[in-house]
Structures are given as structure tokens and as C-alpha cells.
Design a protein around this nucleic acid. Structure first.
Lengths: 121, 121
DNA sequence: CTTGAAGTCAACCGCACGGTTGACCAAGGA
DNA sequence: TCCTTGGTCAACCGTGCGGTTGACTTCAAG
């Protein structure tokens, strides 16, 4: 799991970590604040935090003995960019496919049907 | 790992699987076609495929003894929706935070800063 | 009916992950 | 100075994952 994208997706593959991210949109929080709702040890939450941190989804500052956790938007952008790149290409291809199928149907009425919403460009 | 979002993120956390998705945007492919570029056994690729399938990122049809793999866009949308929801809220909050900090500094440079609990607009 | 191609199923292996407990450190406040 | 608060480090444990090999199923073609 060497690359950034893998680390990011993997980090968000855990419901607890996604919940932590969700709650961090309300503002920076300390480890103990973050840990409070969950029924696990502080160390476990600390590990989750480290996963989010090495994925670049989160940063931590120093402030006396507290280490507030701060959400970082950049890697999220990286992920959406990746997803949307392929999602869009897929959609585009299917629209082309629909066109091809429509043409085939014109030529050959016995062509096997496929349920798809219309794309009639 | 019960929920759909976890399955989806987890599925894309693997570089090989992401590559398979990328290549599927070029069109439906069979298992053996998909497996060809990778230096692993066919069974390994079959497992990867099953992960993508149970995550709903991909579907497979029957066509004689071939089982072409087909990219499905919906779950990708689900993921981007989740990500963007929190990314946007984070961005918005930081803008509010900046405003708050600026005002605090104006009023009282020694203000004991209390992390979180700002909000409420 | 046999052969071959495309895939699946099952068992196994090494390793990383999520969780635990226990010891430890660092910074304030009494 | 001592103790509490906030957090880390280290070792361990069970489970799941990515990978392997080997046997099996299915279907089409000879």
C-alpha cells in the first residue's frame, strides 16, 4: 500500500474513521474528544487517527500537551478527481454504446434487448 | 465491513483494482482479458473482481461461458457525494473560523482560545 | 465423446489491521 | 515537588486479505 490514493481510500474504508472525519467538519478536536463517542480504548482511536494522518486527510498541531486534529481538504480533492475521471469516461462510453445498440436495432430487429435509459443524442 | 461505503472505499484501496476499473472504462472485458497485464494468477484476479462486484462497482453478465465485466457508475457517485459533503463543510468552516479568529484578535489579543464549539449560524 | 478454454471453489500461507492491556513520557497546576 | 491530564509506544491476539496451487465445472467445437 505504497501510494497516496491507496492510503486515502483505505483510510476511509473504516466506518469509525469516516465518522471521525464527519465530526471533524464541526471543528478541530483533541484525541480524547474524538474518542468519547466510541466504545473502544483511547489507543485504538489514536491508531485510527494515525491512519488518517499518514493518509494526509488530517493534520495535528501542538498546543501545550494537547494535539488538536485538523481536517485537510486536499486529499479529498485527489480522490474525487480520480473517481470522477473514470466515472465520466464510463458514462461517456455507455452513451456511445447506447448509440451503437440503437443503430444495431435499426438494422437487426432480432437484436437482444438491454434495459438502459435513453441517451438519444 | 458491513456497509456499502466501506466496501466501495476498500475496493478502491487496491492499486490493481483501481487499474482494472480504469481499464474497464475502455469497454467491458472478460476475466482473462483483465488478468492479462498482471503478473498474478487468474484466481487472484477473479478475487479482485469479486471484491469490485460485491462493492457494486462492477456487474457481470452471462454470455456463453464468458462473463464480461461491466463498470457501474452509481456507487462512484455515492462516494463522491460522501467525500464532497464533508470536504465542502470543512472548507466552509475554515472560512468561518478565519473570520472568527480575525474578530477575536481585534477584540482581545490574549483571548484563551477554545477549540471547537463555534458554529451555530 | 473427447478436448480445450474460461472460470469457480477450496485449502493453505504470510502479513497487515483493528483491537486489547500495560508501561511510559511531557506539561501544567496544587 | 508531586500528581493529574493527554497522549504515545510496545507487545500481543484474532481475523481478514492478497496471493498461491490444485481440483473441479461448463460450455463450444472437433
Amino acid at each position: 500500500m505504497t501510494d497516496a490514493l491507496s492510503r486515502a481510500f483505505s483510510a476511509l474504508a473504516d466506518p469509525t474513521r469516516r465518522d471521525m472525519v464527519a465530526r471533524l467538519t464541526e471543528g478541530d478536536q483533541t484525541l480524547s474528544e474524538l474518542a468519547e463517542p466510541y466504545d473502544v480504548s483511547l489507543q485504538a482511536v489514536s491508531k485510527h487517527l494515525k491512519v488518517l494522518e499518514t493518509a494526509g486527510l488530517v493534520t495535528r498541531s501542538r498546543e501545550a500537551q494537547r494535539r488538536p486534529v485538523h481536517l485537510e481538504a486536499d486529499v479529498f480533492d485527489l480522490m474525487t478527481k480520480w473517481i470522477e475521471r473514470y466515472r465520466d469516461r464510463a458514462e461517456a462510453r455507455y452513451q456511445r454504446l447506447d448509440a451503437v445498440l440503437a443503430r444495431l436495432e435499426d438494422l437487426d430487429p432480432d437484436a437482444p434487448h438491454d434495459t438502459h435509459e435513453g441517451a438519444a443524442s
